[in-house]
Simulated assay, not measured.
Amino acid sequence: MLERKQLKGRTRITFVLPAETPHGPVSVVGDFNHWNPAAHPLEPRGDGTRAATIALPAHSAFSFRYLGAGDHWFDDEHADGHDGANGRVHT
C-alpha cells in the first residue's frame, strides 16, 4: 500500500506492507535510491505493518519494487502503474 502526504514541492510517500508478509527483512528499492537495498528498509510500525517513508520531488514518477530475503523481488499491487516488471509511483 502507498500512503502520500503533500509537502511544499515534494511528496512524502510511505511504502507499507504487512508485518510478516513476506517473512524476513524487506527493502523498497527504485530509481529514487539507485536500486540500493540498504537505503530504505521497511521498519515495524505500531499498527502491525512495516513501512519506509521517502520524500520525493512533486509532479514526478518513479519505478520501484520490493526486495525480500533470499533475493525475492516482488511488486506492490497498489502501485500507480507498472513499467515492465517494476511498479510506478506518481508524486
Rank of each mutant, 00 (worst) to 15 (best):
I54K: 00
P22H: 03
S60Q: 14
S60L: 03
S27E: 10
H40C: 06
T49V: 04
P25M: 12
A51I: 02
A55D: 15
S60P: 02
G24H: 07
H40Y: 13
W35I: 02
A61N: 12
L42I: 08
T53K: 01
F32G: 10
A38H: 07
I54C: 04
E43N: 13
I54R: 00
A61F: 02
A51F: 01
P57S: 15
V29N: 08
D31L: 05
A55F: 00
N33S: 15
G46L: 13
A19Q: 14
R50N: 10
H34C: 04
S27K: 03
P18N: 09
P44I: 03
W35F: 11
P37H: 06
L56W: 00
A51V: 06
E20M: 03
P25D: 15
G30V: 01
V26Q: 08
S27V: 02
R50V: 05
A51N: 10
G46E: 15
P41T: 04
G24W: 02
A52R: 06
A61W: 04
G30L: 08
H40P: 03
S60T: 14
H23D: 10
N36R: 08
A52C: 12
H34K: 12
R50Q: 09
V28Q: 07
H34V: 01
T49H: 07
V29C: 09
F62I: 01
